[in-house]
């Protein structure tokens, strides 16, 4: 019996020691968020015609998209809002939870889908510390921090496309 016990106990200790509980919800204090506010600078009247506004999304890229915004999203290089943000409003907001921080976001944008083709995307707003939409800014997000940014959208004065 002693031999049995001396065989079983190490095995059970091994089992217990390997069981750390597994997955768990992330503690709120460890989470990292990017909170964005979108201002449509000329109000509701300045939106394009209704039939050309399919969706407005926020997308934040870890690497600059080289040829195609959707391609970068499909490669997993970007955070994005899957559903459209509210349309024909003065302002709206979005929130990304950042997984595995620290993460550097090099290009944070608002994107307008103007036809049913998911590839028909146009950048209409970029995050810029200087306020100059021709100079987009990057942002490093650290663990446990929340970052608030503002992006302005002017459909009469769009920023350049990245490619």
């Amino acid at each position: 019996m002693k031999i049995i016990i001396s065989t079983i106990i190490p095995i059970i200790i091994l089992l217990f020691s390997s069981c750390d509980g597994g997955l768990s919800p992330r503690p709120e204090s460890d989470k990292t968020f990017l909170n964005g506010k979108i201002k449509f600078v000329k109000g509701i009247e300045n939106w394009p015609p209704e039939d050309s506004v399919i969706a407005i999304r926020a997308a934040a890229f870890k690497q600059m998209p080289d040829s195609n915004i959707i391609n970068s999203i499909l490669q997993g290089d970007a955070y994005f809002t899957g559903e459209s943000l509210p349309l024909f409003v003065d302002s709206s907001g979005f929130r990304f939870e950042i997984i595995n921080p620290p993460v550097e976001l090099v290009y944070i944008t608002i994107v307008w889908q103007y036809t049913d083709d998911i590839l028909s995307q146009r950048v209409v707003g970029v995050y810029s510390k200087s306020g100059n939409k021709n100079e987009h800014s990057s942002l490093i997000l650290e663990k446990g921090q929340s970052y608030d940014i503002v992006i302005e959208v002017d459909f009469d004065d769009l920023p350049p496309m990245p490619f």
């Binding site: 997955l23 999203i73 899957g82 997984i99």
Partner: peptide, 20 residues
């Protein structure tokens, strides 16, 4: 599949399996 993140939240929530 990296593209699964388009549809599913928290795809990085993966761990060793230790089941008794």
């Amino acid at each position: 599949d990296a593209q699964l993140a388009l549809i599913v939240s928290d795809t990085d929530a993966r761990t060793d399996v230790n089941v008794v």
